[in-house]
């Protein structure tokens, strides 16, 4: 979904339905309440922010299931010295 679609809410509702459905099914099957991920996110932010310059807004926590393997995927972007999001170094 691009920014324009987000702004004007023009993403078609069938796509939204599919995305929401996928999300609830993953959580129903794993018996993990979806809101738990937000609590885990808060815990991770609290634990890491003491030791690392993290971009709190950018932290994402996802639950993922492929076949019979389940995992929690955590992405924590770091800030650089000027407090900006640190970009991955590109090979020259």
């Amino acid at each position: 979904m691009n920014i324009l679609q987000q702004l004007f809410g023009s993403k078609n509702s069938a796509d939204t339905a599919k995305q929401r459905l996928r999300f609830v099914l993953i959580h129903d099957r794993a018996e993990i309440p979806p809101g738990l991920l937000d609590l885990i996110k808060d815990d991770i932010i609290a634990a890491l922010s003491n030791r690392l310059p993290i971009d709190r807004e950018g932290v994402t926590v996802h639950f993922d299931q492929q076949g019979n393997e389940s995992r929690v995927l955590v992405d924590v972007p770091l800030l650089n010295a000027n407090g900006r999001r640190r970009k991955a170094e590109r090979p020259a």
Partner: peptide, 13 residues
């Protein structure tokens, strides 16, 4: 929860 669009906020029930 689905009809209300609040499904991703559930922790306890």
């Amino acid at each position: 929860d689905i009809v209300m669009g609040l499904e991703n906020r559930i922790v306890y029930d």
